[in-house]
Design a protein around this nucleic acid. Sequence first.
RNA 1: GGAGGGAUGGCUGAGUGGUUGAAAGCGGUCGCCUCGAAAGCGACUAUGUCGGAAACGGCAUCGGGGGUUCGAAUCCUCCUCCCUCCGCCA
Length: 418
Amino acid sequence: MLDIKLLRNNPERITEALKLRKMDTASISKFADIDSSWRKLTSEIDELRSKRNEASKQIGILKKNKAEAEAQAKAVGSKKLGDKIKELEEKRRGGEEELNKILLELPNIPHNSVPPGVDSGDNLEIRRVGKPPCFDFTPKPHFEIGEKLGMLDFERAAKVSGSRFVILKGLGAKLERALISFMLDLHSKENSYTEVFPPVLVNQKSMIGTGQLPKFEDDLYKCSDNMWLVPTAEVSVTNIHRDELLKADQLPIKYCAHSPCFRREAGSYGKDVRGLIRQHQFNKVELVKFVDPEKSYDELESLTLDAEKILQKLGLHYRVVELCSGDLGFASAKTYDIEVWFPSQGKFREISSCSNFEDFQARRAGIKFRRDAKSKPEFVHTLNGSGLAVGRTLAAILENYQKADGTFEIPDILKPLF
RNA sequence: GGAGGGAUGGCUGAGUGGUUGAAAGCGGUCGCCUCGAAAGCGACUAUGUCGGAAACGGCAUCGGGGGUUCGAAUCCUCCUCCCUCCGCCA
């Protein structure tokens, strides 16, 4: 959520930001209209309430002094004030709801450093690490390798659940588990994240807190009792500190978590229909930070490096891309995508997305901290990034470590886990 | 699922219709004391919002919504969460 004051005092800045994201700016002027009448009504209501409070106070005193008749007379006038207040409040309520809706559906403002652009074509490559493997044969796609080796069973998964599901078997299941372990160990031991194992079924407030709702309901699985399956552990983990006032010396708070993630992938028909790339359910290890606003951009750099470390240790070729304004996620102010090399496709595919949300999520979720004893609470900055998407990592290993005979090598770093 | 109990400021915890934004304690900040510190003493110490350069003032907020009343932390009602007991269950 954006700062409502910014919206009032500097709507040009937000209009500008929306344009960068190629979004409709109509809601800005709509907001201004409703807001000004909301504020006018509010000051009228406040004034009337002030009068009524004064009258009530006096009635109290009169009653104490046994001046019943006077008290009665005053109560009549006060009742009228009350009716008027109720009427104005009713009038205000509709606008209030609309303002809130607009506010909750406005995306974050891109950071100054974010390159302007319309889509992924305008993203900026920051660095390339490692080298693509050389094959003296045509590299196969990961799903062919996995199916042939009995590690991946898409057909039966379709029977059990539907399309975009997979059953990992034998070595496949074991490799998945090893990867989760490896990632969590590295982040908790070397990168000093606290490991957490969060719920994957969350309430609506949590989904609003991180920005999935109300705008992206179509992407989510909704269960009964107004509970939702998380599309990423970011939701569960960021909301750990919802409506909390943290102490400055607690920051930065760093969590890593593995969770299954659930996405409906509505509107992605025909995209990556085969293989592990785009599943309705997949495992992911997530990194989440709560930090001092002044340090959040340094923290974004280090978080990205923490995620990269996994790929380096696995010996996978990758690049880091800075998302342009048009490709930026709803809640993000700045995002680096890490893309891993897929030999069968001859291109890089996203395996991690590391973002600084600044105070956008903190404001929605009410996550504050007090700088020192004398200062007022301020919103923290939240960040998160995949470290990494496990299914895609497994796919990348199959492809990059494949051999001519259709088998593949387990990366050295994982061997102790087998 | 059934029966009870509870939710108050950074924390603990009083408060059952009237000048209560809220006692007390803890914690914190500042001052006095001291060579310095501890202890002691004193003052200050919620958030949001509107107006204001500020001082300050209005309004709202005692888990959340709705209601009763001139007036609600306090009464009624619905909801959420927590605790205890019973049932069921991995």
